[in-house]
Amino acid sequence: MSDADDLARTREFFAARAADWERKFPDDGPRFAAAVAELGLLPGQSVLDAGCGTGRALPLLRQAVGPQGVVLGLDLTPEMIVQAVRTGRGEPAALLVGDCARLPLRTAAVDAVLGAGLLSHLRHPVADLAELARVTRAGGRLALFLPTGRAALAARHGRTLSPADLAAEPNLRRALAEAGWTLERYADDEDRFLALARRAG
């Protein structure tokens, strides 16, 4: 399948679910707040929510960087961005429709990146993680987050964990290193997955 076909299928999948997306996951708020806190954002900094979906993390990111900071939310699916606007989450952030593999941002534009649920949608993991590194300043941080553990997520989809899974610690550490990141913390608990990395350089 070509990248264009894969993008179209991803858009179609999420477009059909955008209106009801948050009703499916009503209890994720505290886990999103904890993931944002782990980024260690400071007032006045800039942050990208890559694959922001309906924007659940955007108010939390705005609170962390304060009124002088910059919050960007980017998602591949226009319908998700529409939902973010409808819920008032366009107010604390600039919202963009775009592909995380080709970010419409200048080099070293942000201090940090949040990628909630992003890992499983990276078509070319090393290249895509390198694109996130490109737009992040040296020393900046990346949080790859899921509001559930890998085992629970796999069970939900009727599969078991594989050693080849990108999110397995050795694989993710290697991919991040090749892309210009250093993995600093890895947690795969029952109720959340969080990998924190720092931009090399």
Rank of each mutant, 00 (worst) to 15 (best):
R123F: 05
P125F: 06
R159V: 15
F193Q: 02
V70M: 11
L58R: 08
Q63E: 15
F25R: 15
A154D: 15
A164M: 13
A94G: 10
E91K: 12
P26K: 03
G140D: 03
D3W: 00
L72R: 09
A177V: 06
P147Y: 01
G158S: 11
G98C: 10
R23W: 03
G73Q: 13
D189M: 14
D188I: 01
V70Q: 08
Q68I: 02
T136K: 07
L61M: 09
A133T: 10
G139M: 13
I81K: 05
V71F: 06
P78T: 09
L60I: 03
A116E: 13
F32K: 00
D6P: 00
V65R: 01
W181L: 02
R174W: 03
A19S: 07
S2R: 05
L60K: 03
R106W: 08
F13R: 13
F193A: 14
V135T: 15
D191P: 02
A195P: 00
P59T: 12
A112F: 00
A4Q: 12
G66L: 08
E12C: 02
L153T: 09
L114T: 10
P43K: 02
H157S: 10
L132M: 10
L153M: 14
A35S: 09
L103H: 04
A167K: 01
G73D: 11
A187E: 15
R106L: 10
G66N: 12
G115F: 00
G44Y: 01
A152D: 15
A116G: 11
S2C: 08
L122W: 02
Q68E: 11
D188K: 03
A143F: 04
A84Q: 04
V70S: 07
A108P: 03
A50L: 06
D20G: 06
E12D: 05
